[in-house]
């Protein structure tokens, strides 16, 4: 049970990072932390104590394996996370090019 709470703590660290930090790069790191927390939680949901990897090999019977579905889904979620992180990093670099700063309090053209 405690590992689930540690996942929650990781999620909250990511949220804190997004909400409280002023540097664009640190916000991106916060997003990555949130994604990892969710992915880790997803894998843990499918895990069982002492289970083995869900790989079928010749001459072996399937006993006591962990749930393979979350692992496949987490791979997909990681790929999506990669795309989002790359896109946001590119946008942050272009923002730096235009504004000359990573400080979010100084990037304020939009208001109202």
């Amino acid at each position: 049970m405690s590992v689930y709470f540690l996942c929650l703590v990781l999620f909250c660290i990511g949220l804190y990072c997004i909400l409280r930090k002023r540097n664009l790069i640190k916000i991106i790191i916060g997003i990555a932390i949130i994604e990892y927390a969710v992915n880790l939680f997803f894998v843990l949901v499918g895990y069982k104590m002492g289970g083995r990897a869900p790989i079928l090999s010749p001459g072996q019977s399937i006993v006591d394996m962990v749930d393979p579905l979350p692992q496949a889904l987490v791979l997909t979620a990681i790929v999506i996370g990669l795309a989002v992180t790359a896109l946001i990093a590119a946008i942050a670099m272009r923002v730096y090019e235009k504004y000359g700063t990573f400080d979010i309090t100084k990037i304020r053209r939009l208001k109202g």
Binding site: I91, V95, L110
Partner: peptide, 12 residues
Amino acid sequence: HEGLEASFKYAV
């Protein structure tokens, strides 16, 4: 300028 800033906010 505006598009990039808005896009960053939106993406986050």
